[in-house]
Write a protein that binds this DNA or RNA. Structure first.
Lengths: 340, 340
DNA sequence: CTGAAAGCGCTTACAG
DNA sequence: CTGAAAGCGCTTACAG
């Protein structure tokens, strides 16, 4: 292994000077710099990142803390992960994946000094992991939000997203609109913020319509989607449209509704919010979706955290981005409107 | 920050002894050990992983090298990633995500000394990244295989998988079976091994049937799937069944075939090989799939690599696991058979 | 069974 | 503009 010492000897300088040119931390005479750069080139030298980390007490490694899902993570989660990894790499940082469900284990990992900062996914309204993070003194950024809006975060703007979805349906004449959400093992209050915020926005919008709300929480699976179709059919027969905030149940809702003899969109219009375009294309009829800005958000989260680590920024970042409407073939006028 | 020195002072021993009990590297008198453990507990000491890495020249970090996909990685890829991260963590290793397409950049990262070993995904028959990996002297395991079978790998057994798929279709009476593969930007020969191996197994099986082969390479997207439906319809009208080795095109093939007036499975039977159960459930009618052993393979790859690093193993690991048939509703008897 | 000491390969005040 | 030296927090022969 070629070390900085080898380079220094070959260039006839001290290792300090080599360090200065590699890091650009001090001005070095042009001729000296040239000699050093030549030596680096000739020896094919690469600075050891571990030694650098120890000496500078900066590892340039970030952790991505995510629940260790027995269930399959959905496509949106993946886009977060990949774009965060990419964004980090582009700025010279590495991203380690920490699949942890246990607060204790998380604190342990954080205390090991491997990472300079952490990104936390699947943040809940009340989230003990966030308390641990704060206590660990490791800088972080949340992907999602808690009740406490002061912490640095990056999140989907669910209020705007749901408003737009409702507006889209209303423009077709729908007034009775149901909401399918995701059931969590956690009790009420500990659910992911997206569920609570989407629900709040939905309640707002339906109260404006003067119609009683219809909220149906199911599992994020095909079976959950079919269950939602049944509940909708039996419990809310007057609903002419439904908005999903449950990626995994989307396909099941469509299949389940059709199995119950309801044609889409003739009998029922469907919008799946906070998901991917690809999902919409896979389903028949093509689903109208609100595409999540996951690819941007992952990178933004990484950038926000790195800015914080490098002292580039002023205030803690608070970024909210709504989903984008991607029309498919699952939304049309409600049955009454078509009859007239 | 509390260091090993703090612990040593509090327990009245040298830091060497503290190191011995933490790592279990040397026997220590029970009373001494107890004093040290108490001190660790009281000070809530956590060994610094960076210092340990530098001193022991073992970072306990693994890299997961994967292409930096502009396109969305499919569900199977994700399962690999997540299970590899989980498997690594369980053995005390961290997994960093390295989205790299450029060989040069890969070598650079490898030379930095951050990782003890690497896992390489999306391996191609001829793969310059593998040559770089070998040259870098960093231990590795492949997820997939090159031509050179001597290197350590973990892979899906495509030959067996395709054989089973063909067998399943033949048991329903199909004789004319087409294969839809994935088109790659790389030239022939540089495609992912799974395509070549699946194709070879398919050619074998169809030659046994005495029928000319029908191989249709398309993009791994919904549009690609629809294109495959058209090609199949126009170019191979006598085919009564099709096997996909193209996860992303599965839904499009179903939608496209139905759009062309072909009922599934009445007019055309479909099996999607090397994908997830979830994909099968999402599609209407439910797709018969060969579920990829991705959740196991990711972990096995991590285990194989770690065994290698820790000198636990004898020979380089060569693990092949076939996909599992999960019957859906997309396979039935061919039209001729039903007519009789 | 325990300790003193060298060393891992860098960065960074501090001098000059 | 450059260098000598301390130090980052550990591990690991080597002695005793």
């Amino acid at each position: 292994m070629v070390t900085m010492r080898d380079v220094a000897e070959r260039a006839n300088v001290s290792i300090a000077t080599v360090s200065f040119v590699i890091n650009g931390t001090k001005r070095v005479a042009p001729e000296t710099r040239a000699r050093i750069e030549a030596a680096i080139e000739e020896l094919d030298y690469r600075r050891n990142v571990v030694a650098r980390a120890l000496a500078s007490s900066r590892t340039r490694i970030l952790a991505l803390l995510h629940p260790d899902l027995e269930a399959r993570p959905n496509a949106t989660v993946i886009q977060f992960v990949m774009s965060a990894a990419h964004g980090a790499r582009e700025r010279g940082y590495d991203l380690v994946l920490w699949p942890v469900n246990d607060d204790e284990q998380m604190s342990h990992l954080l205390a090991g000094g491997l990472v300079d900062g952490a990104l936390l996914m699947e943040v809940q309204i009340r989230d003990s992991r966030v308390d641990r993070l704060v206590a660990s003194r490791v800088p972080f950024a949340l992907i999602g939000r808690t009740e406490n809006d002061d912490l640095p975060y990056v999140d989907i703007d669910f209020a705007t997203t749901i408003d737009e979805a409702v507006g889209h349906l209303r423009s077709f004449g729908h007034e009775r609109i149901a909401l399918v959400t995701q059931r969590t093992k956690a009790g009420p209050g500990d659910e992911p913020g997206r569920i609570m915020r989407a629900e709040a926005a939905y309640l707002d919008a339906t109260s404006a319509l003067g119609r009683p709300p219809a909220v149906i929480p199911v599992e994020g699976t095909s079976a959950g989607g079919r269950e939602a179709a049944r509940t909708l059919h039996d419990g809310f027969p007057d609903a002419t449209a439904v908005i999903l905030v449950n990626e995994g149940a989307s396909a099941g809702l469509v299949k389940g509704s059709r199995a119950l003899g309801r044609s889409i969109p003739d009998d029922l219009s469907i919008i799946s919010a906070s998901t991917t375009r690809e999902l919409g294309e896979m389903i028949e009829p093509s689903l109208t979706v609100m595409a999540a800005p996951a690819p941007q958000l992952g990178r933004l989260a990484a950038d926000a955290l790195i800015d914080q680590l490098e002292g580039v920024q002023e205030a803690p970042p608070h970024l909210l981005i709504p989903c984008t409407l991607v029309p498919g073939q699952s939304v049309g006028p409600p049955p009454q409107a078509r009859r007239h």
